[in-house]
Design a binder for these strands. Structure first.
Lengths: 241, 241
DNA sequence: GCTTGTGAAACGTTTCACAGCA
DNA sequence: TGCTGTGAAACGTTTCACAAGC
C-alpha cells in the first residue's frame, strides 16, 4: 500500500574512510527521505508527526524511523512525536545542507544544461558557480538567458576550484571522458563527485563519489516489472487450480 | 582504491509481490553494474574475465561477484572465468533488456526534454513513443527538430498506453503534480514508473516504482564529503599525538 | 597453476517488545 | 493513553574457505 521508492542514491564500493560512529549507509539514505517528507508536511503547516505516521508515508515501519533517527541523537518527544520544524533543522544539520555548497558542472550537453536550470539544487543550498566543456565552439557562450554563467575551458578548472572554494563536481560528459574529467577535478582539489556518465569511476578514498546512471535505473525498473508480472500470473495459476 | 558508485537506483518500500526465488535486491542492482562493465570490456574486445577482475573494477570482492551471478545460474567456466559475450547475453536476459520496451514521458520541461535526447535509453532498448504535458501552450509542438514526437494532452494517455503497448512511464513533472500523474498512468495500465519528481509516490503492489531525486543525491554526497573530511582531520590529529 | 560454485560462518540491518516518560 | 528510545532477537547479506573442474 504505502509506496516507496527513492533510495535515489549512490553507493560507494570503497570502504568509508573511517567509522564516524558506524551509522548504516541505508539509514543515511532514509534520512533524506524523511527530510523530503517533513518539508512537505511543513508546507502543509503540520506541527508534529509520529514515527508511525512518517514511516507509513514512506512504506517503512515505525521502529525503523525511530532507530534511524536515534543514530544521530534524541529528537523526539514521548507521547507527542517529533516536531516537524525541529526535526527538519536537525536533519539538515546532520546531512550538511544547513550550509551552502559551491558546485561546478563539467559537460554542457543536454543533461548538463537541464541540471543547471533545475531549481531543486538551489533550494537545498547548492550553487553551481561554473560550467566547463572542452568543445571550442561552446567556450565563452552563455548557458542561457537567465544564468549569467559562461562556459569555460577545462584548463581553468583548478583555478576556479581554488578561488571559489568549490567542493562538489557534477560530471555530465560522455562515458569515455568521465574518468579523465574526474581525475582532473580531483587534482584540482574537489571533494565530492556526482557522476552522470554511465561508467564506474576510480577515485581515492578521500573523495566521495555518487553515480547516477539513468539507463541503469530503467533497467532495474524493467527487472521488477517482469518480476511482478511473473508473480501475478503465478497467483492467477494458483487461483485457478 | 577501486572506486565504485552507482547503485543508481531506487528502492521500493513495498514488499515484492512474491518471492521469485528470493534474490537479494542489492544483487540485482549489482547485476546492472556488471553488465555496464562487461559492455565496456566487450568494446575493448576482451574475451573472458574472472570474478576477481570484474569485482576489482567495481570495488567488490570476487566472492560477491560469483554469489550474485550464482543466484541466476551457472555462467562461469572453472579455470577460465566468464566469457564476456556470453555473460552479457545472460544478464540482459535476466534483467529483461534483451527485449524492446516502449516508454512514455510526462512533463516536457528541461529535464524531460534532456532525457528525450539521451541516447543511453535507446541503446538499452527503451523507446519513448509519446510525450505528454498539460501546458496548453506546449501541446501540439514538436519536441525538437530531430525527434518527430509532438507533445500530447494528458487526456490521450490511456489511449496511447493501450494502443502502443506502453509499459513504462517516466515522470518529469513538478513534485505537486507527480502523484496525480502516477495515478493517471496506473489507471491507464502502465506497469512501471521512473519518477524524477522529488516526492514519495503511492502505487499499488503490482506497479514497479523507482524514484530518482537529483537534489537528494547531492545531499547524500555532501554527507559523505563531510564524513570523509571529519575522518581525515581525525587521522591528522592522531598522527600528531 | 588458475578458476568457479557453494555451504557455513561472520557480519550488518531490521524488527520486536518493552521500560520510561508526557 | 500515546509516544519515544533501545536492548535483544530475528532476519538478510557478505565473506570465508574449500571441493571440484579446467
Amino acid at each position: 500500500m504505502a509506496a516507496e521508492s527513492a533510495l535515489p542514491e549512490f553507493q560507494s564500493g570503497q570502504r568509508p574512510a573511517a567509522k564516524p560512529e558506524s551509522v548504516p549507509a541505508p539509514a543515511v539514505g532514509r534520512l533524506s527521505l524523511y527530510l523530503r517528507e517533513l518539508e512537505a508536511l511543513y508546507r502543509q503547516e503540520r506541527q508534529t508527526i509520529s514515527s508511525r505516521q512518517l514511516g507509513q508515508a514512506l512504506g517503512l515501519t515505525d521502529a525503523q524511523v525511530r532507530k534511524d533517527l536515534a543514530y544521530f541523537g534524541q529528537f523526539g518527544h514521548p507521547g507527542i512525536g517529533y516536531r516537524v520544524d525541529e526535526l527538519i533543522a536537525r536533519i539538515r544539520g546532520i546531512l550538511g545542507t544547513d550550509r551552502g555548497w559551491n558546485a561546478l558542472l563539467v559537460g554542457a550537453g543536454n543533461l548538463g544544461r537541464a541540471l543547471l536550470s533545475y531549481r531543486g539544487f538551489a533550494q537545498k543550498g547548492f550553487q553551481v558557480v561554473a560550467v566547463f566543456d572542452n568543445d571550442p565552439a561552446k567556450i565563452g557562450k552563455p548557458i542561457d538567458r537567465e544564468l549569467r554563467l559562461e562556459i569555460l575551458p577545462a584548463e581553468r578548472m583548478e583555478q576556479v576550484v581554488r578561488e571559489m572554494n568549490v567542493q562538489i563536481g557534477i560530471i555530465t560528459v560522455p562515458a569515455d571522458a568521465a574518468q579523465r574529467v574526474a581525475d582532473d577535478l580531483i587534482a584540482a582539489g574537489i571533494k565530492g563527485l556526482l557522476n552522470f556518465a554511465p561508467a564506474s569511476l576510480n577515485v581515492p578514498e578521500t573523495v566521495a563519489l555518487a553515480t547516477v546512471d539513468l539507463a541503469l535505473c530503467l533497467e532495474q525498473l524493467v527487472f521488477r516489472v517482469n518480476t511482478y508480472q511473473v508473480a501475478a500470473s503465478a497467483r492467477k495459476a494458483n487461483a485457478g487450480s
